[in-house]
Design a protein around this nucleic acid. Structure first.
Lengths: 238, 238
DNA sequence: TTTTGTTATTGTGTTTAATACAATTTGAAT
DNA sequence: ATTCAAATTGTATTAAACACAATAACAAAA
């Protein structure tokens, strides 16, 4: 007789990071559940179980679009989270059973991360889902191990950005001042940077192109706006 | 009635890398199977399905020890491989069914990597398993998507080492010449390095301690041996 | 034993990037 | 017009990366 080896559920969770000019934020989904007869509200990462025969990367893309409306966002797989206790909380178990109509065994999730401009409009397909930005340093307790997943994603962002800081432009708005860009660097690397030296270093880059427009309504010299030229960047790259 | 959502098998695969003084090698397991009435032999990464309730990291450690005898090897999770076609080859399907006594559905594997000194003795617990080192640039077609997994592991090694080259000492023997170390750097980074400059850079490191011993029997000036002092390294680290 | 070939090791100078910090500019508010 | 704060420009120092010539040492060949 054939033994059936242990099977598990597999999901993907997307950590979408944005920058509001001052700090990193993560895109979360509101969740409503019932526990002990009481309705509760909390938040979770956009994520879901994968579909039969679906590639992992495709699953991440699909889930992100369904829950947030975001399309054409480059997603990067960064870590698998598979602790047997990650779905131990009764709230999470009951919520899974209610929403997935399934008996919940062990669930391993593949973590993906993405960087988006925080101004992009967010709107899920699913009825009743609502996405919102929350500062990563002010997160309440989230569903499952999602606090841990976000912490790992931010760590990965730091690691990747230290190798190639240009990836951070994905977080900046179309036009930005050098100071705004410096703020992002400071948040990501957790260090103060000399404004003068940072300015010179950035402005010399051929792919940082100056615009005519300047800041309005600041009580000091108005800064020039710049934009990131992806084309020039790709050509400049070795 | 409750629907049973799609479940999958989950495994771990360990890419153990070593350095023979000239090139990178990977530790593989010989596999014997039967296909079309014919016995065949090929190789695969040390890996296996996870056990109920086991942490992913624990599974990787356990599997590596069982199949190669290696203990106390730091393993790093680096990527999940979950393409639906990764277990499409009939050879692989039949082999899984024979060895795991299970009906094989989709199997997702979590890739781990480790760096070890190539001199360590390799000896599996399991009867009939045999591990051997194979140069990563001379790999035959392997089981499943293991060629791809190894390629990703080597890419990850490059990435990690470019951030912190000191991790490469895990690949070097206890005592080594500066030239041997330079060879490793050149293999990993795929670039030639100036021997004179590399020498000066390395010898100035406080954690590279010179030994009295020198090379024997070379037809040129004998190089001094050095060793990596982990203690000093950790103290020197900021 | 001397010469030769080869790699280890040392020396020196150039170039580039990182860093510190003073000085100047400018828009808005007083 | 004066003041404030931040943007921008200037200048100098330091450290690291890099190129490459020169010397040292060992084994094998002559």
């Amino acid at each position: 007789m054939e033994t059936e080896s242990a099977k598990i559920h597999l999901s993907v969770d997307c950590t979408v990071l944005g920058f509001d000019g001052e700090r990193l934020e993560v895109l979360l989904i509101r969740r409503t559940g019932v526990e002990g007869g009481e309705e509760f509200h909390d938040m979770k990462l956009p994520g879901s179980v994968i579909v039969d025969g679906e590639e992992l990367d495709d699953a991440a893309r699909r889930v992100l679009t369904e829950l947030t409306g975001l399309k054409n966002v480059p997603l990067t797989q960064f870590h698998a989270f598979g602790s047997p206790d990650r779905t131990k909380d009764p709230r999470d178990i009951h919520w899974l059973e209610a929403t997935q109509q399934m008996h919940v065994g062990r669930t391993v999730t593949i973590g993906y991360m993405a960087l988006v401009k925080i101004g992009r409009s967010i709107m899920g397909d699913m009825e009743g889902t609502e996405a919102l930005w929350v500062p990563v340093d002010k997160l309440p307790p989230l569903a499952f191990d999602h606090n841990q997943i976000i912490a790992e994603a931010v760590k990965m962002l730091r690691t990747l950005a230290s190798m190639d800081p240009s990836m951070l432009y994905a977080l900046m708005p179309r036009k930005f001042t050098v100071t705004q860009l410096r703020n992002l660097y400071e948040v990501v690397f957790g260090a103060r940077l000399d404004p003068a030296n940072f300015y010179k270093k950035m402005v010399q880059m051929p792919y940082i192109v100056p615009l005519e427009e300047r800041e309005k309504g600041v009580a000091h010299r108005a800064a020039r706006y710049y934009r990131f030229d992806k084309n020039t960047y790709n050509k400049t790259r070795i």
